[in-house]
């Protein structure tokens, strides 16, 4: 009965959304902004992957805000778990898992770094690469029972990444009068690894920030909050 009422209510809400979609219909072409990005983005920022170009430069200020939302959620998790500790697990992993834990994070980190570094050329960028790096950290955490060595560097890495993101933005503001202007570095030939201005640098900053925040959440789950 309760499920049926909830179903009717949810159906009403979804029909409301569908009616709103009906008013402007199925998309027929690119919007004005997207048309500009698709037409000029290749020359303006020198990036092949338009999604990374939009995330990092055109909408870079929004990304800065979204990364700070992520920071707020992660720090809330760490704060709650350090105020109310839940105790640590006592099970000891077997030797096969311990050996795999030593071998496998290297290739996974390499793959994550590849995704971050080639963000302007192939699908990828800071957010997917950071998630892949965080899953390598998850593998390390699964095999340990006490404190892990990299946990104390997470705060430092996170704040340095955020600081360098903001500083790269201010560099454009000081040099060319526009926050996060991409032309402060040489644009290079599109298609090469060292091209597209500051997009690889900002991708690396976003990747380090996302990876350190997600693995900070996982470390807090495993070990019950930070030290400080």
């Amino acid at each position: 009965m309760r499920t049926f009422i909830a179903f009717l209510l949810a159906l009403y809400l979804v029909f409301f959304a569908a009616a709103a979609f009906e008013s402007f219909g199925e998309p027929q072409g690119l919007g004005r902004i997207a048309e500009h990005y698709a037409a000029e983005g290749f020359e303006e920022v020198g990036a092949i992957n338009l999604v990374t170009a939009v995330v990092v430069t055109y909408r870079g200020l929004d990304t800065l805000g979204e990364v700070s939302v992520l920071f707020t959620a992660a720090s809330a998790v760490i704060l709650l778990l350090s105020v109310f500790p839940l105790g640590k697990p006592a099970n000891k992993p077997s030797s096969i898992v311990l050996l795999t834990m030593k071998v496998l994070p290297g290739p996974i980190l390499l793959f994550g770094g590849y995704i971050i570094a080639h963000g302007h050329l192939t699908p990828g960028g800071g957010f997917p690469g950071g998630a892949v790096v965080a899953s390598a950290a998850l593998l390390v955490l699964l095999g340990c029972t006490q404190e892990v060595g990299f946990a104390k560097w997470l705060t430092f890495a996170e704040s340095m990444a955020g600081f360098s993101f903001a500083m790269l933005g201010f560099w454009g503001l000081l040099k060319l009068g526009q926050f996060l202007n991409n032309s402060v570095l040489f644009l290079g030939i599109p298609g090469q690894l060292l091209s597209a201005g500051i997009i690889p640098l900002i991708s690396a900053a976003i990747g380090v920030k996302v990876a350190s925040e997600l693995s900070g959440i996982l470390v807090a789950y495993r070990c019950g909050g930070g030290k400080e």
């Binding site: 992957n49 999604v51 990374t52 699908p123 990828g124 960028g125 957010f127 997917p128 998630a131 998850l138």
Partner: peptide, 12 residues
């Protein structure tokens, strides 16, 4: 891009 992110985050 979204597919990579969803696969690594949602399933992992």
């Amino acid at each position: 891009d979204v597919a990579i992110t969803e696969a690594s985050i949602g399933a992992g």
